[in-house]
Design a protein around this nucleic acid. Structure first.
Lengths: 202, 202, 202, 202
DNA sequence: GATGAATGAGTTTTCATTCAT
DNA sequence: GATGAATGAAAACTCATTCAT
């Protein structure tokens, strides 16, 4: 077999691998969303794929690993987005608009229709998730700049902001149709000015 | 057997039943806290009890049912507390102080030491939980009174406030020792005035 | 307590005992009929009674024992009937008419409506059942008298006759409404003259 | 892997599957025969196999399902035999000889030695069993031809004939050694001429 | 690397039976 | 003798993972 063909074949193989991996991840995302992590079985995942059950283990060592990979994957996709927004944003409001809008649109895309199954993962179950938390914390710290009291507890504040995004997002998913933009506007206002102020305007 | 004795016996039996139910619930609470809902098995629960395996099924039909009972139980305990605070509180700040303080102290009591395992149950998985959500929503609506724009989306705002409490609470549980009062102060400020204002003070 | 009262009370007790025993037997008969022996549980039986589960064991040592008691009971009720018919009957036809008619009416009474659940008990699972088999065999032997070849295999012939009664009876139970008399007529004719002869007449 | 090898492998796998299925069915047949359906457990069945417990569930969903499969299987094997006899037989006697002889030999083969446990399944528990009943009924109807009164109740007569075969067969299995031919002769005579006639000859 | 049946440890669940009251 | 909750052995069943092909 000539080197050229070998290379071509290797390319094709790599492509197939990537495609299979993606197929498994996509199936897992849907299954976890519909059944929840515990109720979902590897069989459920593989069944939504046209692969054989054993093949799963060529890609992921276990059910736990794919769950981690999924979370990491989500974080991976979130992180550059957060980064980009951090560069672009002039102020806190701009940054929040960008970030929360993107997050809510992502939620609708990935979970719309299965609202009920948004996985309530621990905030820092995986390294990637922790990275997202840190990214948010750093962004907030930087943007707030010297308007930040030295003793301010940024971990709590970051957690609070993420809590708002999470729960308003979940609430949004429950509506038909979900309105990511309206929800984002309210979430941003809530973070910026607090509940009484947010309640005073529509 | 005389009626008197019968009654006494019935009383003792009812007591034993209640005690067993409580023992199982307590064991489940601990097991869920330590292992997480999914990893926990009915065996794990019953093992922490001095009851026989079959006895579990005299009280709960399945692991899912006890989880629901647990959540309902928690909500049940939360609700009167919320109610009481609603009566007592003069303004939003007073109400939030009371409610969030109580919630955080409850968290520390029930999950302190097993911070990692605060169950991230769906906001409205059970009727009791839905009731808590409604209770919070109503309290907020009433306290805000005419400072509330007619078109304000109270479902989103309530979700946001609960999100703050949940995630700041979780963050607090991760600290040793947890400081429910400090965390509550920050959560309240965040809800009242928003993140920039909360960041400006300690 | 005077002897008189004691006696009266003893009588009442004996009555209650007899009534409870009958209640349990009746419930068991229905439960076995509806679910089959294996699927039926002692709980199912006791549930159809207004007795407590433990009480069952004051009357029967086990589920197996009540099944035996039930079969014995059926046989017990069948046997005197067979005996009586044997005395009364002038000839084979008369005896068969009496016996099979009685058996079919008994079937309708006990299993009508639950046709599907006629228990296919082994012909000789219990002593009482064996006794019925023997009773039938003896009756046949006596009534046939010297029209019986010495080498005739009465066990096979008795089994055959019982087989006819059993299966025609089951078939009858499947009809709505069951017609014990029509079925009995055909069964008797079949036993007496064989299938071709029975087919030649209605 | 080349297509040729793939096919070969698929063939081998299919073979193994078929062999395993047969092994489980055979084990179940023996276990049911020895313990009776109710007393038998899936564990008992799988233990007589060199397969793992979970493997059972790759083939049958439950104990009930394998029982049905077994009955269906038996009926499946009986039907072609009945069909063949129907073509071949010149008259009722010939047909009965063929059919009952075959049935009794089949009984001895499958249940000989475990006489006590011939499963008394409902006559029409499965489609295949219903098919056997229908096959017998049709065969009888055709062979009797115009010697059959128009109002004759063939369902009852068929049930009666099958009852004879069943119970005489069971009686035969209880003997050591079983004599399928002797038993068949008597059963046939009983069906053809009735009990008195059958009793008059050996 | 793909396949898919086999594995068997582990889990849930049932239920006949016991026993303190 | 009645009660009914507790018992725990035994059964059914699941499913992540392995492995021969």
């Amino acid at each position: 077999m000539s080197a050229v063909i070998e290379t071509a074949e290797a390319g094709r193989r790599a492509q197939t691998k990537a495609r299979n991996r993606e197929a498994i991840l996509a199936a897992a995302r849907r299954v976890f969303a519909e059944l929840g992590y515990e109720a979902a079985s590897v069989r459920d995942i593989i069944r939504r794929t046209n692969l054989a059950s054993g093949t799963f283990y060529n890609y992921f060592r276990s059910k736990e690993e794919i769950a981690r990979a999924l979370a990491a994957d989500a974080a991976e996709r979130l992180r550059p987005l957060l980064r980009a927004e951090r560069e672009r944003a002039a102020d806190l409001e701009g940054w929040l608009d960008g970030v929360i809008g993107a997050y809510f649109r992502y939620l609708v895309e990935d979970y719309g229709g299965h609202a009920a199954a948004l996985p309530h993962v621990r905030i820092d179950a995986t390294p990637a998730q922790r990275a997202v938390f840190e990214e948010v914390r750093e962004s907030l710290t930087r943007i707030l700049g010297d308007r930040l009291a030295p003793q301010a507890d940024m971990a709590y504040l970051t957690a609070g902001a993420i809590g708002i995004a999470r729960y308003v997002g979940e609430q949004m998913l429950r509506r038909t149709p979900p309105d990511p933009d309206g929800a984002a506007r309210i979430a941003v206002r809530l973070i910026l000015h607090g509940l009484p102020a947010a309640a005073r305007t529509a």
